[in-house]
Design a protein around this nucleic acid. Sequence first.
DNA 1: TGAATAGTGTCTGTGAGACAGTATAGG
DNA 2: CCTATACTGTCTCACAGACACTATTCA
Lengths: 247, 247
Amino acid sequence: MQHDAWSPPPVLLTVDLVILTLRDGHLHVLLVERGEDPFRGMSALPGGFLNHDGEEILDAAHRELSEETALTSSWVHLEQLGVYGEADRDPRGRVVSVAHLAIAPGLPEPVAGTDASDAAWVPAHAVLSGKVEVAFDHRRIATDGIEHARTKLEFSSLATAFCGAEFTIAELQQVYEAVWGTALDTRNFYRKVQAAKGFIVPLGTDRRSTGGRPAQLYRAGPKTVLFPPLIRPAPPAAEENMRGEEE
Amino acid sequence: MQHDAWSPPPVLLTVDLVILTLRDGHLHVLLVERGEDPFRGMSALPGGFLNHDGEEILDAAHRELSEETALTSSWVHLEQLGVYGEADRDPRGRVVSVAHLAIAPGLPEPVAGTDASDAAWVPAHAVLSGKVEVAFDHRRIATDGIEHARTKLEFSSLATAFCGAEFTIAELQQVYEAVWGTALDTRNFYRKVQAAKGFIVPLGTDRRSTGGRPAQLYRAGPKTVLFPPLIRPAPPAAEENMRGEEE
DNA sequence: TGAATAGTGTCTGTGAGACAGTATAGG
DNA sequence: CCTATACTGTCTCACAGACACTATTCA
């Protein structure tokens, strides 16, 4: 942190958001259509520059989030993901982006932000697979964000952020299945979420009917870290290479 | 990432390093004595501003690392930790720091860097407990870095970065014990590290004598993520509150 | 042969996955 | 009573922690 008399080179700081939600049982990412150069007309993650008046980075992320989704801070999970600052990532010059991960309960419809021409929920697999082109290094950022969410579902109560204030265990299971992209055994899932004390707490005998037996309602519990964790099933690996990546 | 005609406020970017190593069986952090204002004479994490010529953030971290420890990039683990950009964290103005975590094998002696008056290995607990005062928000950064390393030891082969190219299982166990601050059962440790295929690979029948039976030498294996992981023993909790933090 | 370090084998309980049936509502 | 959804109980196996002894070198 020490410095000499020479003035260090200033950079421009932006905040970019990987906003995830569940729509019809599938994981979606919010993308906006860029209304300005560079990459005008192309899809990109929502985000923007810091305000002038010494705005905090996290505050800027909250601001962008509410501009894009009309979501209040409550019931939204927001955390820092990492810095993306490669020198050539933005043709305008040295622009360093602080990426954030936001998790929101299913939202009715996207809201066009002030800066963006249009906003839309895009299936996560379309972004991951490259079927949808995105500006800058935003595919990388989105990929990192989704993987971060997948991992964090195992060890934290992050999944409840995809649900509203009240939810059933079946809904919670759908969250895990959608984010992980795998089917889970209902009985084992019930056992495990209830074994992790402090994860979810039952709301009296409340219920909600959809044509079958009413379901118990739960809300998020006080615990942030899950113990025991809900380990993600290993994807079918090519024999003797179970889980574990080469260097 | 969209922007208007107004020019966004530039910020100054620094790179700060949490460099960890093992010395006489204890975890140590490298601190430098600041030679410049602000906080002149106080301890701080090594770091500095980006160079002018479009230097990459990771390159800057490598540069600071070698300036401070005379360590080549090889055998050093270096990864991004996070961004620390609170508006009032630096009295000079808006200075945003990209913190990095570096893990190095035991180094003989610290090397005074170009910018720092002095550099010294400080026991991690002295920094965590607050016994050593550090400048800026560097205690927070160091705390986050150490916790990150502790967690990552469970699921990745990071521990081998604390060792040289060749090491014994006993040495590897000392790494885990020092970083986690707990004693481990030798027999279970042997079983687990050998069960995680690709973690360590034996080097023929090489050996090294220190007065007892020669030990098998190993080197780091190709796998980066450990499966099964080496779960950190839960610290003795106050009954019925085993692992899991309040919100 | 004694000291010092390296390495191994077993038992037991808990948790994870596989699996099938019961319970309660609306029509 | 049929359908649709919510929930529960058991068995088995693999892994984790606790624990004690054997192996190899040097002085």
